[in-house]
């Protein structure tokens, strides 16, 4: 979904930091902040072999668009690019990229953090973690 300075994609292939970066470049902006979420090889003391992301794609895009709109409202963000992976993602691979441009740096930092925090809270994407001895849906059980 690309609309009104907001670029949101859920992709089955490797994500590109440069694509997100290029999208948010703006001649009126003095700061760009990028967050890159990567897959680590351990969680809660166990070895992780890979992840699998499932998405309710239409709703996830809708919810991410709302979060991006909130950034424009709260932090006067100029341009936002949010790319999230779906499917099988390996160790060290990029799971998510958030890029935000802003007139001044401070609000770009704030907006970037806001997006990742809200994404983890309310965007319908589910992570299945594969360990050496099994797999489970993250956050599903108490």
């Amino acid at each position: 979904m690309v609309d009104n300075n907001i670029d949101i994609q859920i992709l089955g292939d490797n994500l590109s930091i440069d694509t997100c970066y290029q999208y948010v470049i703006d001649e009126t902006c003095g700061g760009i902040v990028l967050f890159v979420g990567t897959v680590r090889n351990h969680n809660k003391g166990k070895d992780v072999t890979h992840l699998d992301f499932e998405t309710y794609e239409s709703m996830a895009i809708k919810e991410l668009s709302k979060i991006a709109d909130e950034c424009v409202e709260k932090f006067q963000s100029k341009k936002l690019s949010i790319h999230h992976r779906k499917g099988h993602v390996g160790i060290k691979d990029i799971a998510v990229i958030i890029a935000v441009s802003s007139i001044h740096r401070k609000k770009a930092f704030l907006a970037c953090e806001y997006v990742i925090d809200q994404l983890k809270e309310r965007v319908p994407i589910w992570k299945k973690e594969f360990l050496t001895d099994g797999s489970y849906w993250v956050n599903a059980r108490p």
Binding site: P124, I125, K127
Partner: peptide
């Protein structure tokens, strides 16, 4: 996202959303 009082009918798109874990 819908609260408990939201009406539902056969024409709605309805989904169960377990705790999310993106990012």
């Amino acid at each position: 996202y819908a609260d408990d009082n939201t009406p539902i009918s056969t024409s709605d798109e309805i989904a169960i959303i377990p705790p999310v874990s993106g990012g």
